[in-house]
Simulated scan of single mutants.
Amino acid sequence: MNFEEKLKSGKFIITAEVSPPRGVDVSSFVSKTLMLKDRVDAVNVTDFQNVGVRITSLVGSYLLLKEGIEPIFQITARDRNRVAISGELLSAYALGIKNVLVLTGDYTTTGISKSAKPVFDLDTVNILKMAKKLESGEDFAGKKLNKSPNFFLGAVFNPNITPLDIEILKIKKKILAGAEFFQTQLVFDLSIMERIREKVGSEVKIIAGVTIFKSMEMIDYMINNVPGIKIPRYILEKFEGKDNIKNIGIELCVDLCSKMKESKLVDGVHFLASRPSDIIEVMNILRW
């Protein structure tokens, strides 16, 4: 079964994200990601993560597809207008890539290339609508396609946003626009997921974000530089004054993953900002 079939079958899904290289040597990118082959159900390829120059998500996704790893192609609204987005979507499908995660993208001033001019021609909802129009056989200008794609469209949400009702409203708009699955920012509190389930229903496929904290530097960086991150105080206290940060991080991740699977509130876990070797270690402990 492919990623879509597994998710719709009710299987508890495991996904992870990887970042394409900052250069043309792709060997390390491919070899490290190959560690996840046959261990996770799909791999997200980030799209100009942290507003930095890298090989594109489309190329990274194709490199993984050639190695037998099912990719989730990420595309943001920040760096492209509707023509470029449409072209990349069609290109992805022509290469055999059907899983697409649509994101708005963080503003350029939050990342490395602060002087880059953002585009934001479309937001996430309108990119999803445009992708559905491509599936109907036309582009956004009404021009007929010689053959229609058939994407498996996803979007994201942040369970840490307050008030939560605003984020729930966005989730519902994305569902109406065509999103069939969601991956989330880091989740620490399952009671929040319970509130979201009450509002959006049990049929919506949600893959909850987790991570493996490996150092205090990583924790500080995420708090100070990654938009949308909110790490609860009780989590931070687990690491204060400790030397074995990575071991504590792995124990925390194992505990969260186990609780998420038992809760049945989410349909899987998505490893964010985690090395393949650390992900494998967590999965081995969980016996997944």
Rank of each mutant, 00 (worst) to 15 (best):
Trp288Asn: 12
Arg22Trp: 00
Ser277Ile: 14
Ser277Asp: 14
Ile175Asp: 06
Gly268Gln: 07
Gly209Gln: 04
Val266Gln: 10
Phe157Met: 08
Ala77Thr: 13
Thr15Cys: 08
Lys6Pro: 09
Ile285Gly: 07
Gly96Tyr: 04
Val83Cys: 03
Ala84Phe: 01
Ala141Val: 13
Ser91Trp: 00
Glu240Gly: 08
Ser191Ile: 05
Glu70Pro: 11
Thr110Glu: 06
Leu89Val: 07
Glu67Ser: 11
Leu134Ile: 04
Glu138Arg: 15
Ile248Trp: 01
Pro232Ile: 01
Glu194Ile: 11
Asp220Cys: 09
Gly137Lys: 10
Arg287Met: 04
Lys117Phe: 00
Val200Glu: 05
Asp47Arg: 14
Leu7Asp: 02
Leu286Ile: 12
Thr109Asp: 04
Thr104Glu: 09
Ile206Pro: 05
Gly178Lys: 10
Asp106Asn: 15
Met193Asp: 01
Phe3Gly: 11
Thr184Asp: 03
Thr15His: 07
Leu7Gly: 06
Val282Ile: 10
Ala273Arg: 11
Glu198Met: 14
Phe239His: 05
Arg287Ser: 13
Val45Phe: 02
Met35Ser: 12
Asn99Cys: 12
Phe213Cys: 03
Lys246Gly: 03
Lys259Cys: 02
Pro149Ile: 01
Lys242Asp: 00
Gly68Leu: 05
Thr211Asn: 08
Val51Ser: 03
Gly178Leu: 04
Val26Glu: 04
Ser115Gly: 02
Ile285Asn: 10
Leu134Trp: 01
Leu64Ala: 02
